[in-house]
């Protein structure tokens, strides 16, 4: 019962986050709705249930999160706002010249540890943070969210070799596997397929889940910390790009486009 209530609570937050995402992008007149909406459940589960975001004795957060697919900044800021890092009123200044809420994450933003968004670079940073924890025998996990299109960047695979070499079992990677990127499907653009086999070959423990299901996300992280804790972990989260807004779901054109007045009203109605 308690678990059920908890899931309901998280689902409500997801709904609120989705509303903020479409409003932020509407007011900015630009942004990336599709890939923000696909990973709402992942970020909400992490920040509102899984992660310990309090500080240790050195003033560093116990659990860390790196949004390597930085173009999903709208969902990131909306969730950071749910956690009190960003004032709610600031969200609608997203991408504006007099705002600190940059189009892609900057570590000048409260709660953001490193700037990201030039794809392929976040996993190496996450590795460095996980490695540092190991060196100092510090508790906590480092979470990193990659896009599936982002896996086309070579640096990701360099970094995976490092995760494996240093056996970073305090690292949990999520792949937002929505199957779409700017120019089409990830399969057509660069054959991003057989991901489980690829990650296994690089020495990681692999789980495949429905990435829009909060229960599955929470359980997968539990597994990664429990019986899969011998190696670094990757959770391939099958998601729907544009999730939650009917006309955006699985539509490649909603990768990077703002909603007009009418579209905003339809979207907000659907999120009631």
């Amino acid at each position: 019962m308690e678990q059920e209530n908890n899931i309901k609570y998280l689902e409500n937050i997801c709904k609120n986050v989705r509303k903020n995402i479409v409003k932020m992008i509407y007011y900015a007149k630009s942004g990336h709705p599709g890939g923000s909406l696909s990973c709402v459940e992942i970020l909400v589960s992490l920040y509102k249930n899984i992660m310990n975001i309090t500080l240790d004795e050195d003033g560093k957060r116990i659990d860390k999160f790196i949004l390597s697919k930085g173009h999903a900044s709208a969902v990131y800021y909306a969730v950071l706002s749910e956690c009190g890092f960003i004032p709610k009123d600031d969200l609608l200044t997203f991408r504006k010249y007099d705002s600190y809420l940059e189009g892609h994450p900057s570590n000048k933003i409260p709660g953001v540890d490193v700037s990201s968004g030039s794809l392929g670079q976040g996993l190496s940073v996450a590795n460095g943070m996980a490695l540092s924890k190991k060196l100092d025998n510090k508790e906590g996990y480092v979470y990193c969210l990659l896009g599936d299109g982002e896996l086309e960047e070579g640096q990701i695979w360099e970094a995976l070799m490092s995760s494996n070499k240093y056996n970073l079992n305090n690292l949990i990677i999520f792949v937002d596997h929505n199957g779409l990127q700017i120019d089409g499907t990830t399969k057509d653009v660069k054959s991003v397929d057989n991901l489980d086999k690829k990650f296994e070959a690089f020495g990681l423990n692999v789980q495949k889940i429905n990435g829009n299901n909060i229960n599955e996300i929470i359980n997968a992280v539990k597994n990664a910390k429990d019986y899969l804790n011998d190696r670094p972990n990757v959770i391939i989260a099958d998601t729907v790009k544009g999730k939650g807004i009917s006309f955006m779901e699985n539509k490649v054109e909603w990768h990077g486009k703002a909603l007009n007045d009418e579209e905003l009203q339809i979207a907000l109605n659907e999120l009631k």
């Binding site: 540890d113 976040g122 190496s124 460095g128 490695l131 540092s132 640096q155 360099e158 070799m161």
Partner: peptide, 26 residues
Amino acid sequence: PNRHFDMGISEQDMIGTACGMALSGK
């Protein structure tokens, strides 16, 4: 040896990992 990290022939990964370590206070 425990404070030296040979990242292999992966300079991009090296810079990123080094940044993660620096952001952790090293």
